[in-house]
Design a binder for these strands. Structure first.
Lengths: 121, 121
DNA sequence: ATCGTTTATCGTAGATATACGATAATAAGA
DNA sequence: TCTTATTATCGTATATCTACGATAAACGAT
């Protein structure tokens, strides 16, 4: 399957870019506010940054993220949940661990959403 | 003064674009999450959309925004306050009214912030 | 089967967000 | 001055967010 790497297949939202034009205005605004809420906390911005900058051949499990943040494990787990629900990241169970990665093309998707929601383009 | 139009001078953040490179990583993440929180509600996205799409020769007072949203005046006023605090809009008192407009170049500023906070660019 | 590791979920406490009606503040106009 | 129009703020109720420790669930290894 395309996009597979080291056993972890990261979703790619690039193909959804054109779908934005077909969304209703209300859906567009809801979608933009949903994604914005995902980044509305410094810890979550940091998590996305970590996952975006991770080398392609390295994997990043929950524990790695916990170690990188000054928060309790349960708090980090909650932030990961929010990022999953708002569509920024993806998690894949690997034995007792969970391997996380960002959704490919999400930044571009976010920008296109913003352009359409705010400027009607 | 540059940027003045119909008596309302809208701030322009374009000149701050280069400052982003000089911000600390933490400030960058805080700034990105702050701006994201501004758009983290559909009503606020709609307000920014209204102000972005307003003809340059027309002004937009609080009452216009209240009429465009299905919310009570006090709720809209609160959302306007959040948008002011997070840096998306600006208000100028004009008699008993308050005239609102977006900050010029904010979308570009937001994107640059995102690029640096998430990708270190 | 049992133990240790890893991660999600539960329970909880305090803070913040969201909505509304009511009220206060400000300015224009009669 | 008094009234009207406009907008911000107050008070309040409910919901969501954020953090933590404790516990549960899932899995590999012994």
């Amino acid at each position: 399957m395309k996009g597979e790497r080291e056993g972890l297949k990261c979703a790619d939202i690039s193909s959804e870019l054109l779908e934005i034009q077909r969304m209703s205005e209300d859906d567009c605004k809801r979608e933009l506010s949903r994604l914005s809420k995902g980044l509305a906390h410094p810890a979550r911005v940091e998590i996305v940054r970590i996952l975006e900058n991770k080398p392609l051949d390295k994997r990043c499990v929950c524990g790695d993220i916990v170690n990188a943040l000054p928060l309790a494990q349960s708090s980090v787990s909650q932030h990961l949940k929010v990022l999953k629900e708002t569509g920024w990241i993806q998690g894949e169970i690997d034995g007792p661990r969970v391997c996380y990665c960002t959704i490919k093309g999400m930044s571009e998707y976010y920008l296109a959403l913003m352009n359409r929601a705010l400027h009607g383009v």
